[in-house]
């Protein structure tokens, strides 16, 4: 009985353990492995969430593409609206007609996949964003980094690329002593690093905020004494407010990542503007 209770307590710490308040911690992002423990292909809860998000995204897009009609249905209209926004609102507006046409697929892919991986943070039972551990944002950022690096070197040559990035025209010669190292750091380190950190830190902070609000609500309602129970209503309302905010943040971060991809591509490919 004792062991059964204690094992229950480890599974359901909030429900079974009434010894106090459990704040969410970083351990949330490193759940125990489910499959292939100890190998590089270790599957844990967050990996499963990522698989689910990818499967849902693929299913929706494939179904929409298969049933695409000249007169679109309701679902098709929504997807076409987002795709049109990625092409017209992001790619064409920042990169211009010609480059925009070339990079619209990349930007659309980034917009859709980051949105679907972010939104799992507010989907009940999944409860954690696929992008809230640094690996996946890093992959996206490295993709963008090598994309602008390789394409710029291909179209401008190594010399032209470095000259455009490190020695921007229109400043006095001696300013280059300060400007060139800063620009070097920008291009080769800060752009991919900030893309990664922005996405991952946003989703991590969002998860911690939601978990804090709802675990505080549970503690205040079921374990706290007398008057403190009233505070539970406040944390519950706060939790719902942050829930709505997280939906907005998931969409905003996907948009910001896509628009920065376009901006970085534009900066690398047309340095003189």
């Amino acid at each position: 009985m004792e062991t059964a209770l204690s094992s229950l307590a480890t599974i359901l710490p909030l429900a079974a353990d009434d010894s106090g308040f459990h704040a969410p911690s970083l351990a949330d992002f490193f759940p125990p492995a489910v499959l292939f423990e100890g190998t590089p292909f270790e599957i844990n809860r967050i990996m499963i969430v990522r698989f689910i998000a990818t499967a849902v995204l693929l299913t929706i897009i494939i179904l929409a593409a298969k049933r695409a009609k000249l007169v679109p249905g309701r679902g098709q209209v929504i997807i076409e609206m987002v795709m049109n926004f990625a092409r017209k609102g992001i790619a064409d507006e920042i990169l211009g007609e010609k480059l925009g046409k070339k990079y619209a697929p990349v930007i659309t892919t980034i917009l859709f996949s980051i949105f679907f991986l972010n939104i799992t943070g507010v989907v009940p039972f999944l409860n954690v964003a696929g992008t809230s551990v640094i690996g996946l944002p890093l992959i996206f950022a490295l993709w963008v980094f090598f994309l602008y690096l390789i394409d710029a070197v291909r179209s401008l040559g190594v010399g032209g690329f470095l000259k455009g990035q490190l020695f921007p025209p229109g400043v006095p010669k001696f300013v280059y002593i300060v400007l060139t190292p800063v620009e070097f750091l920008q291009v080769f380190l800060l752009r991919p690093a900030t893309l990664t950190i922005r996405l991952f830190a946003n989703m991590m902070a969002g998860h911690l905020l939601l978990a804090l609000c709802f675990s505080a609500t549970s503690y205040l309602f079921f374990q706290a004494a007398g008057g403190l129970k009233v505070l539970g209503a406040v944390t519950l309302a706060g939790g719902f407010a942050f829930y709505l905010l997280e939906i907005f943040v998931a969409a905003l971060q996907a948009y910001v990542f896509a628009i920065l991809t376009a901006v970085y591509l534009q900066m690398a490919l047309e340095p003189e503007h």
Partner: peptide
Amino acid sequence: RSTMFIGLAF
């Protein structure tokens, strides 16, 4: 608005 969001990100 789109310029604002770029600035917001930075």
